[in-house]
Design a binder for these strands. Structure first.
Length: 467
RNA sequence: GCGCCCAUCGUCUAGCCUGGCCUAGGACACCGCCCUUUCACGGCGGCGACAGGGGUUCGAAUCCCCUUGGGCGUACCA
């Protein structure tokens, strides 16, 4: 195990979204590649907005994607004592101070600054106040930031980034209710958990200089940073619900395979030459921050769909069969015991872009009696086809039910009736599946098995007779 | 407004660091042809980009500057 320690630190105020999933994935990949440690930390300092439900949703989504952590989940809400001590330490060393300005005053000052066209920074009213006995007046604790000079760091993705310290105001590290704020706890935790690299979203670059100052004030070593670009919608705006689903689990519900989402997400912002398809194992081997791009990427649902199609096409039929059960259940279908789901999957793998689609297309296998599409029936189940069904029934009765066997039986039907493939194939398809658009007829026969085939052909034949 | 970041086909990207191999490669989507028992799959081909302007250089997608465009931040959210 190497020294590399990274983390994913979501705040449980909703489900795991696409952007968060990619950040988690990159961290996970790095940890695995370097045989380091992947830590999961739940950032729930905002007690109001955090819910256990969200925590569970995030955990579920990570498990589904296959992103297992080595340590955690840790909950910041359980570490308030630690933060408290660190804040006191800062207060004691004069690196933080109590601020008695009210939210209303702050808002007014901010607004005034905006009016003047100035940067709306805290003006430092309480910065140099003499120590004051605690008389119950509410206060927040502010970090006394460096005002001279510059703070700069080398981002592993973006290169050197420099901020003028005059840009940084004294931010609040403890609210008036005594709870610590994000920018403070993130530093304490990242340091206490021994992170060697902080890999997170682009939206945090602006927080980095102030965080670096806190590391220094607290005497912690500063880790490396890597800021991954945002994911945008087609309109180049930050990805949100109006761009479609942003929840990872929504993709599972829509019939996406986790490996497809993982593959898509990793390629959005990272590349490895011209390669497009990567298994998790390959990613662990090939992933590197060196090939992560610096610019934001647009989420492209169609490419994700293509990848999903690919993984369905090449996936193990038995595994997909088990997954299919889940999607079948969602449309109230409980597969019959005697039908091998792997055969069903094999017949549909090249025809389904999502598992939801596969379940829909698979429905006919499990529906008794078969519901015939009206147009298809009018055209292919008429008096004209009665003989076909009769002969087919006979041949299938004696056929061996393997792929050579059913094919041979079908060929004999062609010989006996003197008809061409198409003339017999379509009626057969309709009789067996109910429609004209379905898997190959041999595949259907094998999945259905002899009894069901004979039953369905017989039913079709009866329909012919009845007009 | 101010600050930080970014900029190659519609989209994801290769190439950029270490200028010439780039008449800019791959993938998705789209279009066409082929294959074909339906629907699909597949195969082949096509369309399509270095944001603009200045430099530096024998030579720039690659280096520098400006402009433009976009993203992020600017909370007692994270």
């Amino acid at each position: 195990m190497s020294q590399t320690r990274v983390r994913f630190a979501p705040s449980p105020t909703g489900y795991l979204h696409i952007g968060g999933a990619r950040t988690a994935l990159f961290n996970y990949l790095l940890a695995r590649k370097e045989q380091g440690t992947f830590i999961l930390r739940i950032e729930d300092t905002d007690v109001q907005r955090s819910t256990q439900q969200s925590v569970d949703a995030i955990l579920d989504a990570m498990a589904w994607l296959g992103l297992s952590c080595d340590e955690g989940p840790f909950y910041q809400s359980e570490r308030f004592d630690l933060y408290q001590r660190k804040i006191q330490q800062l207060l004691d060393t004069g690196k933080a101070y109590k601020c008695y300005c009210t939210p209303e005053e702050l808002d007014a000052k901010r607004e005034a600054a905006r009016q003047r066209g100035d940067k709306p920074c805290y003006d430092g009213t309480c910065r140099d106040l003499p120590p004051r006995a605690d008389d119950g007046t509410p206060y927040v604790v502010r970090f006394k930031s460096q005002q001279q000079g510059r703070t700069s760091f080398v981002d592993r993705i973006k290169g050197r980034i420099t901020f003028d310290n005059s840009e940084l105001d004294d931010m609040i590290i403890q609210r008036s209710d005594g709870t610590p704020t994000y920018n403070f706890v993130v530093v304490v935790d990242d340091a206490e958990m021994g992170l060697t690299l902080v890999l997170r979203g682009d939206d945090h670059v602006n927080n980095t200089p102030r965080q670096i100052q806190i590391y220094t004030a607290l005497g912690y070593p500063v880790p490396e940073f890597a800021h991954v670009p945002m994911i945008l919608g087609a309109d180049k705006k930050r990805l949100s619900k109006r761009h479609g689903a942003t929840s990872v689990m929504a993709y599972r519900d829509m019939g996406y395979l986790p490996e497809a989402l993982v593959n898509y997400l990793v390629r959005l912002g990272w590349s490895y030459g011209d390669e497009e398809i990567f298994s998790m194992d390959e990613l662990v081997e090939k992933f590197s921050l060196d090939n992560v791009g610096r610019s934001a990427g647009v989420f492209n649902p169609e490419k994700l769909l293509w990848l999903n199609e690919h993984y369905i096409k090449t996936g193990d039929a038995r595994r997909l069969g088990e997954l299919l059960r889940f999607y079948l259940a969602r449309i109230d279908i409980v597969p019959a015991e005697d039908i091998d789901l792997a055969l069903v999957v094999k017949s549909l793998q090249d025809r389904s872009r999502t598992m939801v689609e596969m379940a829909q297309k698979a429905a006919f296998y499990f529906t008794e009696p078969v519901v015939h599409d009206a147009k298809a029936r009018a055209k292919f189940i008429t008096a004209e086809q009665e003989e076909i069904f009769a002969v087919l029934h006979e041949e299938l009765s004696g056929a061996t039910f393997d792929s050579d066997g059913v094919e041979a039986a079908f060929k004999r039907v062609l010989e006996r009736t003197g008809l061409k493939f198409g003339k017999v194939g379509q009626p057969t398809r309709v009789a067996l599946s109910g429609g004209t658009s379905a898997p190959g007829i041999y595949e259907i026969m094998l999945a259905l098995g002899r009894e069901r085939c004979l039953q369905r052909i017989k039913a079709a034949r009866e329909l012919c007779a009845n007009g």
